[in-house]
Design a protein around this nucleic acid. Structure first.
Lengths: 344, 344
DNA sequence: AACGTCGTGTAGATTGATCTACGTCGGGTA
DNA sequence: TACCCGACGTAGATCAATCTACACGACGTT
């Protein structure tokens, strides 16, 4: 069965194509009689306008979202924020997924550009700056999770430095000294300066240095997923021994670390663990993972707001930094706290 | 800066638009000389063809995916399967997200249809059958997780009956009798017959009956997310007392149950817990949740393969049922097993 | 030399919705 | 009666790529 076109509707309703178009777009110059006739015909034929034909002239009324790893709960939270904020003035949303192993943000962003979306929200895209800058001169872009001082696009970030400081200081304050950090191993060769995990890595190193623990600085490189982090942690422990704390760059990685620690029989008393993102699973009592909250939901809402402004014509770049909060749970509690917890 | 069109490229290269189009599509009748000239011009102008203009004639080379809750790890797994299978013969993939609270699959599927995707993979869509049937006469659709005997689309399902039987029998075999089941509360009024959660619910009731436990049949209704399941479980326990086992309709819900059980101070010894989907988090030793594996990854791969056949012209509906496997972990281990585990 | 053929390239129609520019009709006013 | 104005409706151009039908040489064959 062939798809009905606006001409079919026009013929059925006995009016011109332009008249149908007017009705569909709620333009004025439409008599009530014509409106009902057209609506009838639309209903009868099951007509739906094609987005492609609309896109040939003017805007698509669509916003594209790029994430580099859909399974990450943090992204899901960001997306919820976007959806929520969007519900008032509905753009259509489409998500361009990337292969989790390759994380090629280029392809995904270009594919959205080819679809002529009105704007793009990119969550922690692993692309180089000049490219992103060039892209942003063609389509409005809001980037979540890049600290770069580039001009063409807006950015929404968490306060990664403050969040990391809180996390590492917390570990030091509770008596830990040999603190390892799981950081993101980007399979691409390009520099990752300005990404959240780079900031976290640098801040971690700085705090260790400032606290006289420079000698204990220890990096574990892994993709931010459970399995790679698990493997990398086991390898690192085999090589360098058991640390007394691990600060993981995100919660998914922290879960991998947790599994590794379990494998070697270490408890939270032996090795404290802190994650990042404060995803839902961290709060579950079975896991009870200390984590840095960076308000993914608010990030999504903010990014959507900025993008709407951009689409509306704003040219000056906007930068928003959201505060973080360290949520302390059992995975990093001191021995006395653990005892309290288990007595209740 | 205006976007370059095929006419710009043609002018720069000194050839006709049609010639450029040929080069782009790798059509024949192109001399090597012309090819290099055109490729040069494309490079120089940063030209990219617009999908909308292409869509006006012929196909978009795009496959759309609909999920009703992106945060669900099971969906992420399905998606990974699709992406993997697609990497050989690349269609573009786009995901149409729905608001997690509203779960309106209609809108998402229609929006993909309006974009003229070549085919749609819908994961557990909450839409009525006649509508889906009608839709599938317009665009090839493969549905994951519907057992309905409808004709227009293909289906890929897990063996929900077998999976549920294994789960419930396992609980009974380990000495549990008061077994509650967390099932999906669909906020929509329409019937949910044929959905996986309905099959699981019915099978649960049947096994209980056949095992002489009909009196203990007990349903907890909740959306399949951590928070709603948590709340519903607490409410149910307040009303009906503590069961000695819970079979949750999926892992996300199981995590909510787990939190509720923790709140009331119940351990795995007191209340056994079984989930569904065997998501990564279930395998984590901190959670160690017994769960039914239904091979989300394979479902994604299979669905993609079927869709490609459909797009290729197959008319007869295909139905694929993938086997399930019960993965037993600590959350449902008998007391002796728990002791073994903690001694190691 | 005339004719056919093959390889290469082009003109122009086509796709569906939008939008401008214009036409028509009815009613009010000079 | 002539004129104008506003409300309603239409014809036709437009958007960017694709694709068919055809043109134009160059070359080989009879």
């Amino acid at each position: 069965m062939q798809r009905a076109t606006i001409a079919d509707v026009a013929a059925t309703a006995g009016v011109s194509r332009a008249a149908v178009s007017k009705v569909l777009r709620n333009a004025h110059g439409v008599s009530p009689d014509m409106r009902t006739r057209v609506e009838h015909a639309v209903e009868q034929l099951g007509y739906r306008p094609r987005i492609a034909a609309r896109a040939m002239r003017g805007s698509t009324n669509t916003i594209g979202i790029v994430v580099n790893h859909l399974a990450n709960h943090f992204f899901a939270e960001v997306l919820e924020g976007v959806i929520e904020e969007n519900s008032a003035e509905p753009y259509q949303l489409i998500v361009a997924p990337t292969a989790p192993s390759r994380s090629d943000g280029h392809e995904a962003i270009e594919s959205l550009y080819d679809r002529e979306v009105d704007g793009i929200i990119a969550v922690a895209p692993l692309v180089d700056l000049e490219w992103l800058e060039r892209m942003s001169s063609r389509v409005p872009i809001v980037v979540i999770g890049r600290h770069d001082e580039a001009g063409g696009y807006d950015t929404v970030v968490g306060d990664d430095a403050a969040g990391t400081e809180a996390a590492v200081h917390h570990l030091i304050d509770t008596g830990r000294t040999s603190i390892a950090h799981v950081t993101h191993a980007d399979s691409h060769a390009r520099s990752d300066a300005g990404t959240p995990h780079a900031i976290r890595r640098d801040t971690y190193a700085r705090v260790m240095r400032e606290s006289g623990l420079a000698a204990h600085t220890r990096l574990i490189w892994a993709r931010f997923e459970e399995q790679p982090a698990y493997e990398a942690t086991l390898r690192d422990i085999a090589e360098n021994g058991v640390p007394d704390a691990v600060f993981a760059g995100n919660d998914d990685a922290a879960l991998g670390v947790l599994r590794a620690l379990h494998d070697i029989g270490a408890t939270a008393r032996d090795v404290a663990l802190v994650g990042y993102d404060n995803t839902r699973i961290a709060a579950n009592p079975a896991v009870s993972l200390t984590s840095v909250d960076q308000q993914g939901h608010a990030m999504g809402r903010t990014a959507f707001g900025l993008l709407r402004e951009r689409i509306g014509g704003r040219r000056e770049p906007a930068r928003v930094t959201l505060p973080t909060a360290l949520i302390i749970r059992r995975s990093s509690a001191s021995s006395s706290q653990i005892n309290q917890e288990s007595q209740r």
